[in-house]
Amino acid sequence: MAHDPLLARAREVWLELAGVAMAFPAGGGVDVAASTRSLLCPPGWVGIVALNDAAIVTAPTDTQARIVREALHGLPVEALTDSDRLRAVLPVSEVLGPANLAYLDGCDFQPTGLASVDVLPGEHADLATLLASVPAKDADECGLADITSHAFVLRRGNHVVAAAGYRRWPGDAAHMCVLTTPNQRGRGLARAVASAAVADSLVNHLLPQWRARPEPSRRVARALGFRQLGAQLSLRIGA
């Protein structure tokens, strides 16, 4: 396979988050390791990240790593983020995901310019008001409460109805966080504020990362030029 710089950068992000020396196998397949410092998943869980034709998996103990390694042996990489396939070979008690992982090379960026996008400090009260105005699940999933960048927002009257920003991750990744109020969705606002956040991350020489499950969010990413490279899934096993 020809060298893909975007894929290589994306893999470096997750290898740093794994908390242990490991690698995406060069010929495809999966590398499984025990890591008590893994950030691929919640503590005590098994974390799986598949990018293109290879995957890495961390488990909280050597015993669980051995169980997972044996269970995943022979499975195609695309099955490693399929919860039904995993339940068939592992004693899975709980699953988070899968979430699609997409990344952006600056030369592929398709910006949407709106002069009305404002820039606010990430801790601004108007951002907190926006988060409080949406269902708790939306507020938690969007990640805006944890951004390290400025917030890029659109207003209707005095109210912020869409916002985006990013949290800087290890490996110089900019993890994108976007939220639009439910009654304003489908109008291109998410793309507008996300475009401003992406542009800011590129100016700062970061790698824009878009992690999403809902199709509307994935459509926004594609419209901006993001390329889906794989998926992430976390699971808790009983053994």
Rank of each mutant, 00 (worst) to 15 (best):
190 A>H: 01
201 S>G: 09
158 N>P: 02
75 L>S: 05
81 T>A: 04
105 D>A: 15
126 D>C: 05
43 P>E: 08
140 D>R: 14
68 V>Q: 12
171 G>A: 06
28 G>Y: 10
112 T>I: 10
29 G>R: 07
230 G>Q: 10
211 R>G: 14
170 P>D: 06
201 S>F: 11
54 A>S: 15
136 A>R: 13
218 R>L: 14
73 H>E: 15
99 A>R: 07
58 T>W: 08
19 G>A: 03
169 W>T: 04
19 G>E: 05
152 F>I: 01
162 A>Y: 03
89 V>R: 13
84 D>W: 07
15 L>W: 11
122 G>P: 14
61 T>I: 04
33 A>T: 05
153 V>E: 02
52 N>K: 15
236 R>H: 14
2 A>P: 12
41 C>D: 10
21 A>F: 04
23 A>H: 14
84 D>I: 09
50 A>W: 03
207 L>R: 07
222 R>C: 03
85 R>P: 02
53 D>T: 15
196 A>I: 00
96 L>Q: 10
34 A>G: 08
90 L>Y: 13
217 S>V: 09
237 I>G: 10
145 A>Q: 11
29 G>K: 12
19 G>Y: 05
141 E>Q: 07
193 V>P: 00
59 A>L: 08
158 N>C: 05
82 D>Q: 13
78 E>I: 04
115 A>Q: 12
106 G>C: 00
142 C>W: 00
222 R>H: 12
84 D>F: 07
176 M>V: 04
44 G>E: 08
93 S>L: 00
42 P>M: 02
237 I>P: 14
108 D>Y: 06
161 V>L: 02
85 R>M: 07
132 A>W: 06
41 C>F: 00
41 C>I: 01
228 Q>T: 15
119 V>A: 04
138 D>C: 03
198 V>S: 12
72 L>C: 06
88 A>V: 09
234 S>P: 07
206 L>D: 02
11 R>L: 05
186 G>P: 06
95 V>R: 13
66 R>C: 00
47 G>S: 08
57 V>Q: 10
50 A>G: 04
148 T>W: 11
158 N>I: 03
221 A>P: 08
94 E>N: 04
135 P>E: 06
110 Q>F: 04
176 M>F: 07
97 G>Y: 06
224 L>M: 07
83 S>P: 15
195 S>G: 09
26 A>Q: 15
235 L>C: 11
190 A>F: 02
97 G>I: 01
30 V>I: 10
141 E>V: 10
51 L>P: 12
107 C>T: 13
226 F>V: 09
9 R>L: 10
55 A>F: 08
130 L>D: 10
123 E>T: 11
27 G>I: 12
227 R>I: 08
171 G>E: 07
220 V>A: 05
155 R>I: 08
125 A>L: 10
